[in-house]
Design a protein around this nucleic acid. Structure first.
Lengths: 106, 106
DNA sequence: ACATTAAGCAACCTTTTGGTTGCATTTTAA
DNA sequence: TTAAAATGCAACCAAAAGGTTGCTTAATGT
């Protein structure tokens, strides 16, 4: 429920790699997504579950396999939030600049 | 050196709260930034160090106090990266849509 | 039918993380 | 010149994270 959890989920090289793959790849199964990550399938599955738990990723079972797909909406929440922080920062800088340029004399 | 480290740093409620404060507040000292977080000053200092270590934040000593300020450039790297993932996702969806709409009937 | 593939689950282990207490140091205010 | 303020540093601790092995089950291809 916390914004921090989304960043936390992105904050691991294996999980981030999964997200990268999903962002430009096609229709991964859990196995395909878990391969060539340098860890076991079971290890990868645990990492994948972290992504699921914060809704960065959704699972859909199809027969014996399970497809993984990105939930770009959650990704967008994360991106928007950082963008908002940046805007706050900018407007604060602007305020300071205005103050410096138009000193209210006495 | 890894992108994931930036998200990891943001992925803790206390560290994220610090970033929020810095984004719209003025010129925090370490002590001011560390107050009312629900943990000790020393605990907060350790969290702050995590932000420093990924360059989300910079420290500047002034006499007995140390000022903390945001490095918005690093924040921007994080934001741009997510935005890029989103664009990849969009263009992939678009490609699938085109394929469906203009079948290359052999 | 049988082997293989895709996956789940649990126990276990090591390292990292998040936090604490306690004490030392330096700068500044009274 | 002494007290308070701002900070640093280290040892320690519990819990969480990241990963493994081993075993089970359910679908599917041959």
């Amino acid at each position: 429920m916390n914004e921090a959890n989304i960043y936390k989920a992105l904050g691991d090289p294996i999980r981030l790699e999964m997200i990268k793959r999903l962002a430009h790849g096609n229709d991964y199964t859990i196995s395909a997504l878990s391969s060539d990550l340098g860890i076991t399938r079971q290890g990868a599955r645990k990492q994948l579950q972290v992504l699921v738990s914060v809704n960065l990723v959704r699972l859909k079972q199809q027969g014996r396999e399970t497809k993984v797909h990105l939930d770009v909406k959650t990704l967008n929440i994360a991106q928007q939030f950082i963008a908002k922080l940046e805007r706050q920062w900018e407007s604060r800088l602007l305020a300071l600049k205005d103050f410096a340029e138009k000193p209210q004399g006495h």
